[in-house]
Every structure is written in C-alpha cells, then in structure tokens.
Design a protein around this nucleic acid. Structure first.
Lengths: 222, 222
DNA sequence: CTTGGCTTTAATGTATACTTATATTCTTTG
DNA sequence: CAAAGAATATAAGTATACATTAAAGCCAAG
C-alpha cells in the first residue's frame, strides 16, 4: 500500500469490522486526517473509496457515515450471501484439488475440538480458513470477492452468531455435511448443505433482525 | 449529483459502457480535468471511486487504466452473473406482485415483434426492461446492485450477443420459459430457466472467449 | 416564551501549489 | 556503437488555500 489513502482506507475498514466504528457513526475528514497524520486529501479519498463499495454513505455536503442497514437490506444481503456461498460450494465440489480437499478435511478435523469445547475464538479462526479453502477450491475469484464484500457489509449485524454456545456445535455439524458433499463431488448436495449452513435452517434471519433491534436499543442508551 | 466528481464518474462509466473507453485505455487525470473543465481533484476522486468498484484499475504512481479481463476472470464473472440472475428469478417467482407480473408479460409480448424481425436495438431495450422487472419482483435491491455491477464490468466483452440474429429469437424463447415459471410461482423452474437463459446452454461461454480474442486482435491493428 | 429570519461558523467541495517518484533522454564511458 | 548512469521532465500523490453551502446560534418581533 503505497498511498496514504489506501492505508487510511484499510484502517477505517478495520475499525468498522471490529465494531470500533459503528453504523451511523460520522466519519469526519478533519478528524481522520488528524488521527492518521495526513492531510484531508487522502482522508477524503479513503472515504470516497469506501462509499463506492457501500460500506460508508456520503451525502453531498452532509459528510459521511458508516452505512446503516434496514432489516430489509440486511435480509437481502444475507439472502444474497447464501446464494453466493452455496454457489461457491457447488463449484468447489466440481473443481477442488486433492491437496485442497485434504486441507479442508484437516481444518474440519482441527475445529472439532474447538466446537465440542465451545471455544468460539478458536472455532471462528478455523471457520475463516474453512470457508477460504472453499473459495479457493471454487476457482472463481470474482465470487469470492463478492462474498467478502458482502460479509464486510454485514459484519456488524452478523458477527456474533458463533459466539452463541449452541451455534458452534451446530456449525461444525453443518460444515461436516458440506465436506461430505464436496468429497463426493456432488455439487447439488454441496450447494444445499452450504445454503443450509449459511442460513442455519432459517434461524439466522431471526437472529439478524433480533440483533439489529438489540443493537439499536443499546445505541439509544449511550 | 451535486459533486463534480460524481458527474465525472458518471461520464466515464458511460464512456466505458459505450465502448468509447476500452479495457486497457489509460485514464489520465489531467486529460479528464481538461475535458470536463474541472480541476484534478474531482477527476482523481472519480477515478478512485471507479477503482473501488473494479471498473478501472489503479496502480500507485502508474495511473489508472480501464480494467482488462483475462478469459478466466470473464468466465468467473459470467458464472457469478448466472448465479445471481437465476437467484433473482427464483425470488421473483415467489414474490412478484400481480401488476409486476402483468408488466413482465406485457414486455415479453411487446418484444415478440422485435425478436421475430431480428430488430436487435428494440429487443435490447425490451430486454433491459424485462430483467429490470424481475429484479423488482425479487424484492432484493442488493442482489440487483451486484448484478448491475457485474454486468457493467462484463459489458465490453458481453454486449454483442444480442446483435447476432439467431440469438434474439432464442433469447425470446428463453424469456418465455422464465415468464412461464414465474407465472406458475415455481422458483426452481424459474432459477433453471434463467440460468439457461444467461448461459444460453453454455454457448455464451464460448462466445465470450471468442469475443475476447477477437477484440484483442482488433486492438493490435490500431 | 416561541417562532422566524439573519448572521456567523464550521465543514464540505474545488482549485492549485508543492513534493516525490518514475520514466525518458542525453551524455559519457567502455 | 552500445550500455549504463545521471539529469530532466512528466505525472501521481499530498498539502493547503479558497469557495460554497448547510447548520447552528442569536436576536428580534409577535
């Protein structure tokens, strides 16, 4: 990253994904430039890049805020994410290489301990590698990019599901179904298994909306 | 569009979609600022926004070019487009409202004449409205945005298929299958019909690669 | 006391000046 | 004559100054 604007963009992204900057928070150009010791120009450029991807919203003459999602929008994104992830799984079932499949099975085995001991932190790390291997096996970098883009926009509303004790074990079982289907080389089954995993049988929708209302309440109490 | 950078961004987008700016073409900040009578700042900001969406590529200190696609990337995008469009069709089959369905049927009827007389220009216009109505019926603005984003990036390589005489009639028949499935409220059938339409039974892949090599050759002869 | 309008202020948007890095060209040396 | 290196030029990246607009605060009038 040679340009200051890219550095700043990365830092803002990180702060949003970590929840340090929350939806609705104002992103002031001057504040950014002071915090990161650059002039307003690269700070502003960073904001505009993020606005182009939808992570922040800019209204002319009114500054930028971290994008807030309505329940409808969040559901739409989750629906789309399920579509993309399940397609990636279907592709992976057809295209994954032996060594990638071995790695996938290994990660799944490695995550078993974390799942059974409800160790969310370790499990989340494994989960990231698990899905990453599927994107790689799918041999479609574009769909992987869209998935990452969508996940980053949902992050604030969608993160916490793996912090629920019951979800970790359920997730591991669902992962197992995906692995099985990919191992068989069955794209339809992999697709169905992944869709079920992302939506967790529909419960994730309810979680999402519940989380949104909860977080909105906690904002009011600030 | 209150900001000059938004105006410039729109103009560049239009020039790219119309083929006036072609993949690989350099986008010079100074040239832009002179052509559109603005300073370098908004010109540069326009470029950065487009770079964030992937339509142009910026390499630090080396300026920006309209993104070129390798065959692999183009195939990946088409694959993803098929996934998104077919999902939108499935959703529309479940959610479309009566008046939207009426409009869809009307557009399909209207396009029949254009299809049979091989009037590509009229048909392409109808085609746009047809797909737009499906996005609307799908009640998922996010997936519609991703589709539009993907189409804009594929535009240069993917446009011309409806200028082939045989494709127009085939497209109309495929549209008919989609309409039928949506009318029945059958999401699986709508999904399959739309996937088949986007890929036209696999021929579009071949077309895409052929078009790419052809256009690359014509660039060399400039 | 409240409301409407004006004034001031602060932040966005734009222009331009300045810095830095890269590429090209010219010169020098082998 | 060729190749390598230095110098210059050009364009990207950054900083800052200026313009413009919206928002907030204040004053006056009803």
């Amino acid at each position: 990253m040679a340009r200051a604007s890219d550095t700043v963009r990365g830092l803002i992204e990180k702060e949003i994904s970590r929840g340090k900057l929350r939806p609705g928070d104002l992103i002031d150009e001057k504040m950014l430039s002071e915090r990161f010791q650059v002039s307003r120009t690269p700070a502003r450029e960073a904001i505009m890049q993020l606005a182009a991807t939808g992570l922040v919203q800019m209204r002319p003459r009114h500054g930028a805020v971290v994008s807030e999602l309505s329940a409808d929008e969040a559901v739409a994104m989750l629906e789309t994410l399920a579509c993309l992830e399940s397609e990636a799984a279907a592709l992976a079932a057809q295209r994954i290489r032996q060594e990638e499949l071995d790695a996938l099975i290994a990660v799944h085995a490695e995550s078993e301990a974390a799942a059974h001991s409800h160790d969310s932190k370790s499990y989340i790390e494994c989960n990231g590698r698990f899905h990453g291997l599927i994107y790689k096996g799918a041999r479609n970098t574009y769909i992987a990019d869209l998935i990452r883009q969508t996940r980053s926009r949902l992050a604030y509303y969608h993160t916490s599901s793996l912090y629920q004790r019951s979800r970790v074990e359920r997730s591991w079982v669902e992962h197992g179904n995906v692995v099985k289907a990919i191992e068989k080389g069955d794209p339809e089954e992999a697709q169905a298994a992944m869709r079920d995993h992302i939506l967790s049988g529909g419960r994730v929708y309810a979680d999402l909306v519940a989380t949104m209302t909860h977080k909105k309440e906690s904002e009011n109490t600030d």
